[in-house]
Amino acid sequence: MREIIQEFFKKTLTLRLFWLSTAVILLFILPLFISTAYISLISEMLIMALAGCALNLMMGYTGMVSFGPAGLYAVGAYTTALLLKKTGIPFAATMVAGPIMAGLVGAVVGWFCVRRTAVYFALLTLAFAQIIWTIFFEWYDFTGGDDGTVGFRKPELLLSINSSYYFILLIVIICLILLWIIVNSPFGKTLQAIRENPVRTEFIGVNVKRYQLYAFIISSLFLGAAGSLFAVFSGSVFPDYAHWIKSTDMIVICLLGGMYNFLGPVIGSAVYIFLSKLISGYTMYWMLFLGIIVVFLVLFMRNGIAGFISHKIAPLIQENKETEK
């Protein structure tokens, strides 16, 4: 623990963390300046940023491309929403139950999925997510089916948009710090080794399948947390949260921001949601523009916005350092 704090302060001195803390402070004082419409937009960005980072632990760091992250996100959302609607247990407990349930489902689903690789892994995650979608969609008596689970209680503290914004901000920051610690731990480095070369990783004594399963479960936990937050934020939960199109949204968010950068999905989420609101305000054909952006990304900017910045600017700094030597 002490070394984490030390590391934190050492980092604070570097430029990157200066900007990061400025951004966080800005996020905290933002409700003083802008209207609630924007605050709720930013809340949504924060939640999708968390979902993106959770997915990225699996996709960008471990190299396991999942087509079904939305399934686990929806498990988190439905767990919290249904507990709030059907039971009287404390709000905090429902917020914890969401990620835990997603983690459990992730453990079962992941146990099967890690036995397959590449396209078969991806298709298996897709099929499981669609099963989850079907359950929420068809189990009308319990989940409300297509009408969704709506009208569940919310603690009074979170009734205003600003206070729910602070709640979301706090949880998302805590989760992101946890994820940051994990990806920079020996465990996180081992995951990156698996991404780079699973066969070689096996031969340095790592049980690759087991580590992939761990990554799957951790990713599910945080996807579930994002789902729980979104349930509370929007006050309603629908089967389409689990749909493969929602999963694709999450993948696009990771790709847009940059998969090989910790904060990539955060940038991706902000840009994606901002653009979608902006363009859809002008035209009913906004998905056309989204499609063009996606195709452009794949063809010309595969490392996303973060990758673009670090590939264009970082090498210049690196070169300077090397010539100094």
């Binding site: 070394e3 984490i4 590391e7 610690i181 994990i182 920079n184 731990s185 020996p186 465990f187 996180g188 480095k189 081992t190 790592v206 580590y211």
Partner: peptide, 11 residues
């Protein structure tokens, strides 16, 4: 020690 989740690998 590659199972350690919460300590910083860097150093």
């Amino acid at each position: 020690i590659n199972g350690k989740l919460f300590s910083q690998a860097k150093n």
